[in-house]
Design a protein around this nucleic acid. Sequence first.
DNA 1: CAAAAGACGAGACACGGTCTTATAAAGGAT
DNA 2: ATCCTTTATAAGACCGTGTCTCGTCTTTTG
Lengths: 150, 150
Amino acid sequence: MTSTEQRPVWAEHAAQALAEAGYRRGGARRAILELLDEQSCALSAVEIQEALSRRNRDVSRSSVYRVMEELEEIGLLQRVEIGQGMVRYEPVRSGPGHHHHLVCDRCGRLQPFTDDGLERAIRRLSDRVPLHVSEHEIVIHGACETCAAA
Amino acid sequence: MTSTEQRPVWAEHAAQALAEAGYRRGGARRAILELLDEQSCALSAVEIQEALSRRNRDVSRSSVYRVMEELEEIGLLQRVEIGQGMVRYEPVRSGPGHHHHLVCDRCGRLQPFTDDGLERAIRRLSDRVPLHVSEHEIVIHGACETCAAA
DNA sequence: CAAAAGACGAGACACGGTCTTATAAAGGAT
DNA sequence: ATCCTTTATAAGACCGTGTCTCGTCTTTTG
Ligand SMILES: [Zn+2]
Ligand SMILES: [Zn+2]
Ligand SMILES: [Zn+2]
Ligand SMILES: [Zn+2]
């Protein structure tokens, strides 16, 4: 995965994009942006709220969901549905940062992967199929190496 | 999709498999089995409950979920997570009935598809990836033809 | 600085799903 | 057939995640 970029760039970029999209700046949004940018892995809404709370920067539930919505709208955030109704969010870093996820159903670990074969298959598939494919985010389930060993 | 099989076969098969697995027979389970067998498309838990209620065969919420769990356990039922935390269930008819789903994000329509390219990609992928892939059920999102036209 | 628009927080609410418990039904033994 | 044990079921309390409403606070703009 692309991990060469410096950390604060996404938050900056996102803040700017939000401004250009006509949003004002506010404390909650800023805090959320910064938190997300620091994370290497996707967070759930509650995780975001709790993490911020731990830093004495409390943010309301409504704010978390509202900001998630805004960010997803502008394409700065990827929503990852990991099953059982659980949803996590992660920054979309660069343009070609497209990737998918592996979820360990035992410990819940989430890791990204890319695969050209899969992308090709999906591209070809979307021509043949009676559906105007919008976005795709594939989640593969299984047991991670640590869990599989046990 | 394989649609040549007569209808009541799955329910029979399922009932037998359950018996062999040591489950007793009970009214609720039987009713659910029959309902599922009649469906051409996957149903949600509430849909199951409501459909049965309309036939004056009320079934408790717990029963629906319990039976879903049992059936999934024995591999007779496929759980389909269609996003937004929504889950649907459908009979696994024959052995090689493996397929995936297209979901229209506007009207909610659900349709099955198979694609060898996709299967191949996933098979190769699962060798290369640090995860012991268990099962896979891919859900592709988009707009169905009717909705796309509008 | 004042008014207007937008951001925010608090909490009520909706909904899918889980857990608990008392009752009913099945299966086996006599 | 009857009794006993075990499992299945119904009813409803409960929980977590996400939505909605609304009053207040903050940012922006004139
Ligand atoms: Zn694991
Ligand atoms: Zn992709
Ligand atoms: Zn549609
Ligand atoms: Zn498949």
